[in-house]
Write a protein that binds this DNA or RNA. Sequence first.
DNA 1: CTGTAGGGCTAGGGTTTT
DNA 2: TAAAACCCTAGCCCTACA
Lengths: 105, 105
Amino acid sequence: MTKAVPNGPFTWEDLAEPVGSPSLVHRPHLPSPRRTAVSPLQPADNKAKRRKARKWCVLEEETLRKGVEQYGSGNWKDILITNPDVFIGRTAGDLKDKWRNMTRY
Amino acid sequence: MTKAVPNGPFTWEDLAEPVGSPSLVHRPHLPSPRRTAVSPLQPADNKAKRRKARKWCVLEEETLRKGVEQYGSGNWKDILITNPDVFIGRTAGDLKDKWRNMTRY
DNA sequence: CTGTAGGGCTAGGGTTTT
DNA sequence: TAAAACCCTAGCCCTACA
C-alpha cells in the first residue's frame, strides 16, 4: 500500500508553475460534457420521523469510553459494530454526539 | 465549541488487549506476547488522520466551474494543477467531491 | 503506476426533546 | 434556559477498476 502522500502535515510542495503558461495545450480537449440538468426532484414531503430520545445507560457510556481508548476518537463505526450487544438502536452518529456531550466542558 | 479532545494524538499506545465487552471470552492463559501477533480484526492502526474539513470559498467554486467548462467533468487533476494558486490544500478528489455537491439536486 | 467514480464515514452546525 | 439526544450534509476517505 503506497499511500502516496495521503495527507501529511501540509506538504504543500512548491509546485511552482506559471499559471499563464500554455504548456499543456497538446491535449485533445473536448467541450465539457454538458450533462443535462439533474431532474427537478420534488420538494419531498417525506419527512422522516425523528427517533424518540433514549437516555444513555452507564454500560453504554463505559463501553464508549473503552471504545475510544481502543480505536480512537472518530472511529465511531468501529466502536459501534464491535459492541452490537451494547449499542442497541444507536448509530455511529449517536456515539459521536454522546462523546461530544461527555467531553464537553 | 468543544475542543476537549476531538481527534487527539492517538492515545492508544498503551492499549494492550481488546476488552471483550460484556462477554469476556475465557482465554487460556495469556503469557507475554512480545511479538504483536497480527490477529485479524483488531484496532485498525492503519487509519490515517482525517484532514479537517475546510469550506469552499466562492473563488474556488467559480474556478471549478470554469475548469469543468474548459477540461470537462472528470479531469480533476488537470483542473487542479492549472489552478495551484486557487486550490490550495485541495486534492483532485476534493474537486470531484465538490462538483458532485454542486451538481446534486 | 496513475486517476477517477462512487459508496462510506465523520465533523460540526442545527433542531427537537427533556 | 440549559443540556442531552437526534438530524442534516458538506467535505473527506477508501478502493475497485479502467
